[in-house]
Computed example of a mutant assay.
Amino acid sequence: MEKSVEDLLREYKNYTVDIINLLEKESFDSIEDKMMERQCALDELVSKLDQKYEARIFYNELNMKEVEDKVQKLMKKKTLIIKEKLDNISKNKMASSAYVKGINSAKIFSKKI
């Protein structure tokens, strides 16, 4: 049985809400699966181009704009946090390697000739 536009939009919204919950829990490993499922629902919805008007009505009824804005803001926020953590790791690694390099070169000067 073929799903209606309303069912597809509800399914899409549920996947989006699940993604929001996973982002809030920082369960990043599970997000990819939900994103794939969400994309499948979206692809199926896009295939129903003849029902565009109906889709727009249900989109507004289900407050999809707010849900999508929320997931987008949350994804940007988490991306920035992860990027910042990676930058800190990179800086720490560079500082550590510079420190080790400094210690190794200092040993040359402490040897008796």
Rank of each mutant, 00 (worst) to 15 (best):
E26A: 10
N88C: 10
K48E: 03
V5G: 03
L86W: 07
I113C: 07
D18H: 06
K70S: 05
E26H: 05
S4W: 13
R56T: 05
K13E: 11
S30C: 05
D43A: 01
K77A: 07
G102K: 03
V17P: 01
V71Q: 09
Y53M: 04
N60D: 13
L45K: 02
Y99T: 06
N88E: 10
A106L: 06
D29G: 01
S30M: 08
L8Q: 03
L62W: 04
L49N: 04
I20R: 12
K107T: 07
L22G: 13
E37F: 01
S4R: 07
N88G: 04
S27F: 00
N60A: 12
M75P: 00
K34P: 15
N104Y: 11
S97L: 09
K76T: 13
R38D: 01
S4I: 14
T16C: 08
D69H: 09
S27P: 02
F58H: 15
Y12R: 10
V100Y: 12
A106T: 05
M36G: 00
S4M: 06
N21L: 07
E84M: 10
I108C: 10
V67G: 04
I19C: 10
Q39R: 08
N104D: 15
D7R: 11
N92I: 01
E26S: 10
L22S: 14
K48N: 09
S27M: 02
K93P: 12
L49T: 08
V71C: 05
A95W: 03
L49E: 12
S96I: 09
E32A: 10
E6N: 00
I103R: 01
V100H: 15
D33M: 05
A41G: 07
Y59V: 13
E54N: 11
K65R: 14
I57W: 00
E24D: 14
L74P: 00
K76R: 12
Y53P: 07
A41L: 02
I108T: 03
K101V: 11
Q39F: 05
K85S: 07
V46W: 03
R10I: 13
S110N: 14
E84H: 07
Q39M: 01
A98R: 10
M36Q: 05
L62C: 04
E24F: 00
L49M: 03
S47A: 06
I19V: 06
V67Y: 04
I31R: 07
A98G: 05
I82M: 02
Y59P: 06
A55C: 08
K93V: 06
E44W: 11
K73L: 04
N92C: 04
K76D: 10
S90F: 09
S30G: 05
D29P: 00
V100P: 09
K25L: 06
L80P: 08
M1Q: 06
L22T: 10
E37R: 15
T16L: 04
T16H: 08
K85D: 07
F28Y: 14
M64V: 14
I108H: 12
I19F: 09
A98L: 05
R10K: 10
L80D: 14
E68F: 13
V46A: 04
S90G: 01
I82E: 02
K3I: 04
D87C: 02
K52N: 12
N92M: 03
